[in-house]
């Protein structure tokens, strides 16, 4: 849970540091704790630990799932497509020298397709927060994108009213030439994403609604599963741990 408190012992495990180090960081304000209970024990919020670790996928998921939408921090928030384009160029520079030239190009293209997809399908229809969450997590070697948009099912249902649930919608989105922006001729984006992921040492975790897809290199099928946690919009985590 976003606001549940975590003991100093659990926090030390998550951060891989000793309890003494956490006490020192608390004193120096590097990672402030929350004092609670009659003895004033130190506790931590999970969101604070995630922020400290910059665990982007967790932060983005919490942002996407929060019942009330508020813009995320400025460094990860792309309110408009122009901001996203500029940040995509920054991502490209940040990846250079860390992965191969072709991986830089492909990862940027996949992130570009997914991020622009959010704008394409929600323009003028954002339910609350306009724009997307976009971040590079070099420590965990992944790129995180999320939106609080309408989600794939709601968008595709306009052209495929027979779709019953998010799992069916994700399957259609990743396999068929179909667009929620009829009558525009389009719909290559997520098919492109799929082909790049399965032909390279990348992974993609994609969730919309209660449907989650985990795609990796050489996958022939689309492993879509039902999950309990619900995300109205979309979250995509592009992993490149295996790439050189």
């Amino acid at each position: 849970m976003l606001n549940s408190l975590i003991s100093i012992g659990e926090a030390s495990k998550q951060l891989g540091t000793s309890i003494d180090t956490l006490r020192r960081w608390d004193t120096t304000n590097r990672l402030p704790s929350i004092r609670s209970g009659p003895r004033g024990h130190r506790f931590y919020r999970q969101a604070d630990l995630d922020l400290f670790l910059r665990n982007e996928s967790s932060l983005a998921k919490q942002w996407a799932m929060a019942p009330v939408g508020v813009p995320p921090s400025n460094d990860v928030y792309c309110q408009t497509r122009d901001v996203f384009q500029a940040r995509l160029e920054r991502l490209q520079h940040a990846l250079q020298g860390k992965v191969s030239e072709s991986a830089v190009s492909l990862l940027s293209a996949v992130a570009g397709e997914i991020g622009n997809n959010s704008f394409d399908h929600n323009l003028g229809n954002w339910p609350d927060v306009t724009g997307i969450y976009f971040s590079l997590d070099m420590r965990n070697r992944n790129i995180v994108l999320a939106d609080r948009g309408q989600g794939v099912l709601a968008t595709l249902k306009r052209v495929r009213p027979e779709l019953n649930n998010a799992m069916e919608a994700v399957k259609v989105a990743f396999t068929e030439m179909v667009s929620g922006r009829f009558p525009e001729a389009r719909g290559n984006g997520l098919k492109f994403v799929r082909s790049v992921i399965i032909e390279n040492p990348f992974t993609l975790k994609f969730q919309t609604g209660d449907a989650s897809l985990l795609l990796k290199e050489y996958d022939k099928d689309l492993p879509i599963v039902h999950v309990e946690e619900y995300i109205r919009g979309c979250i995509a985590i592009i992993g490149f741990e295996g790439s050189i």
């Binding site: 995509l88 490209q92 190009s105 940027s108 570009g112 397709e113 622009n116 389009r186 290559n188 984006g189």
Partner: peptide, 10 residues
């Protein structure tokens, strides 16, 4: 060209 996607190319 460093990055191209089907959206732009389309």
């Amino acid at each position: 060209v460093l990055v191209l996607t089907p959206s732009w190319a389309d």
